[in-house]
Simulated scan of single mutants.
Amino acid sequence: MVGGVFGIAGAGAAGRPKAVAAANAAWRALGLPGEPEVVTDIAVAFAAGSPAHAGLVVFAGTGAGAAVVDDGEVVRRADGYGWLVGDEGSGVWIGVEAVRAALRAYDGRGAPTTLAESVPRLLLGEAAGPLLADVDLKALTLGSGDTGAAAMSSGAALPQAVLKEVYGGPPAGLGRAAPLVTAAATAGDEVALRIVTEAARWLLADVDAVRPTLEEIIGTARCGDSGPGVVVAGSLLEEGPVAEAVRAGLCERFGVEASVADDGTLGATRLALRRAGRD
């Protein structure tokens, strides 16, 4: 018997035909008989973090959301809708919030923040140097001296350069700014702290949305019980302030420490062995 499992992003209902066709083509190209099973990358992420047949996975990388998984099938999901209409709490969402915070500091609508300097340095590279030289960085980042529009009186080109870079590149590219925010939050920047706190709040709201379905499947665990499989996946949930807040929230809700998803190969292998009755 030959079998396999492909975990593919976008393999839910909307993108399933294309994902299945791609998986089948790759399978045939290897000269293997039969057809592989195609599941979402969410199901694979859960299996990569837990050997349990059912449980919950919270994911926050380029995208974000939470899902209840039962035997390799996503039975309930919250968010994961993409950068344009969802993915609150994701790296891209945090990156967008970082740019917004910088722009608000520039025009006087927002509080001073170190993101007013770090964001253009990231997005513009060496070109940021001359533009930043024309602004009052102490005012924009620390709040000393003039703030907002006054601090930008001779540096109006800076926000326009940031905007040109943002709208000229792929939206997912803004996820590069997420580490800037988490680092600034760790250093005590109040604006960055608000962003990471809001990111964690969105992710735990996703958890609360799908929690009733999980409890219907396996019941509610108490602290110390073996409980359900609870997994976190994605770069934002490996370490840092968002990871710490989300993991603490998961422990409060389910009484277990969340495990971190391993490489997706492990998850796909677990699912394939289970399908073959060898788990």
Score class of each variant (00 low, 15 high):
153 S>D: 13
198 E>A: 01
197 T>R: 11
267 G>V: 02
198 E>V: 07
242 V>T: 02
272 A>G: 10
151 A>W: 00
105 A>T: 03
38 V>M: 10
197 T>P: 08
185 A>P: 01
179 P>N: 08
242 V>H: 01
60 A>L: 12
233 A>T: 09
10 G>M: 02
135 V>M: 06
5 V>C: 06
153 S>K: 15
276 A>I: 05
121 R>S: 05
252 E>F: 05
48 A>C: 04
100 R>C: 09
222 R>I: 09
245 A>H: 10
17 P>M: 07
207 V>H: 01
15 G>W: 05
144 S>G: 08
69 V>H: 09
25 A>G: 00
177 A>D: 10
147 T>L: 11
70 D>G: 05
196 V>I: 05
162 V>F: 00
8 I>M: 00
119 V>G: 05
92 V>N: 07
91 G>M: 10
151 A>V: 01
114 T>K: 08
258 A>M: 06
202 W>R: 12
25 A>M: 00
189 D>H: 02
57 V>M: 13
60 A>K: 12
88 E>Q: 12
253 R>L: 13
57 V>H: 09
101 A>Y: 09
137 L>A: 04
61 G>H: 00
116 A>D: 01
62 T>G: 01
190 E>S: 14
129 G>H: 10
71 D>L: 07
166 V>G: 11
263 D>G: 08
263 D>N: 13
183 A>E: 15
173 G>R: 13
96 V>K: 11
139 A>K: 12
93 W>G: 10
264 G>H: 07
200 A>F: 04
228 P>K: 14
226 S>R: 15
47 A>F: 10
116 A>R: 04
9 A>E: 02
184 A>Y: 04
59 F>D: 08
161 A>Y: 01
62 T>W: 05
221 A>W: 03
8 I>T: 08
152 M>G: 10
174 L>E: 02
18 K>E: 10
61 G>M: 06
41 D>E: 03
148 G>P: 02
129 G>W: 08
110 G>R: 04
278 R>Y: 06
249 G>R: 04
87 D>M: 02
36 P>Q: 06
148 G>N: 10
223 C>Q: 14
214 L>P: 06
64 A>C: 07
94 I>L: 09
229 G>I: 01
27 W>I: 01
89 G>A: 05
27 W>P: 10
243 A>Y: 10
27 W>N: 03
62 T>D: 02
98 A>P: 00
161 A>R: 00
76 R>S: 15
96 V>H: 08
186 T>C: 01
81 Y>E: 12
144 S>N: 11
76 R>D: 15
238 E>S: 14
132 L>T: 00
146 D>E: 13
126 E>W: 08
266 L>D: 05
81 Y>A: 15
255 G>S: 07
196 V>E: 09
47 A>Y: 13
165 E>M: 00
237 L>T: 06
154 S>V: 03
154 S>T: 14
49 G>S: 03
175 G>W: 01
246 V>Q: 01
20 V>C: 06
197 T>H: 09
94 I>K: 10
211 R>T: 15
248 A>I: 05
176 R>F: 03
30 L>W: 08
8 I>K: 03
31 G>H: 13
135 V>P: 05
92 V>L: 01
51 P>R: 12
177 A>H: 07
154 S>H: 15
86 G>F: 02
275 R>P: 03
267 G>W: 08
105 A>V: 13
209 A>G: 06
148 G>Y: 06
